[in-house]
Design a protein around this nucleic acid. Structure first.
Lengths: 94, 94
DNA sequence: GTAATTTATAGCACAAATGCTATAACATTA
DNA sequence: TAATGTTATAGCATTTGTGCTATAAATTAC
């Protein structure tokens, strides 16, 4: 019988950016009103993979994100467009 | 004795986006005048990993790119900013 | 031109991403 | 509340990313 800790993979990425990415993906997907399954189909990924990304279970590869962006018909930068708020103090940054 | 083909890993990503990303990374790195080694140090990645990314030998993970962006002191979107020319005609695009 | 620096390769070990399949949990609606 | 649709989990097999170490190749400085 495994403990909870043992049940989890050791994940070493620990990126809060991945949470933001997941949020952004969910947002874009719901804006476009498509299901995870549909997105999986369009991106030629699997449903489980889309779900794992949105629930921050994994640290996806760059080409996976390219596929998703293409499937969503957005630029890759749009998928990552959440750091634009609060990184460079150039603009007044809310 | 292995043939050339056998010597190569089967790579399934085949993303031309990764080539662009590699170019962009090289560009940013040389603009900032830092070596691969210095970037590796700052991003807490290895030299070999930086080299593999710049020579498109691998398909890096998202969190690896976050680390690199941070080490270069640019927004993650800047690292992916090569599709911005010619995807959405909405804004006047720089 | 040779020494020093920088970049590219290589192989190994290990952790993790991905596909596949099945199922559970949750939400929506008839 | 059932049925249907959607999202989340789970385990396994396989491929691949990453660190580590060493070395080769290329570039730059002297």
């Amino acid at each position: 019988m495994k403990t909870n800790a043992e049940n989890k993979r050791k994940l070493i990425f620990d990126e809060e950016g991945l949470k933001l990415l997941a949020q952004r993906l969910k947002q874009l997907r719901s804006e476009k009103k498509i299901t995870q399954e549909e997105l999986a189909y369009r991106s030629e990924l699997t449903l489980s993979q889309i779900a794992r990304i949105e629930t921050v279970k994994i640290n996806p590869t760059v080409s996976t994100m390219f596929r998703i962006a293409k499937a969503l018909d957005v630029k890759i930068t749009e998928l990552f467009d959440f750091e634009s708020i609060g990184t460079t103090p150039t603009s007044k940054e809310r």
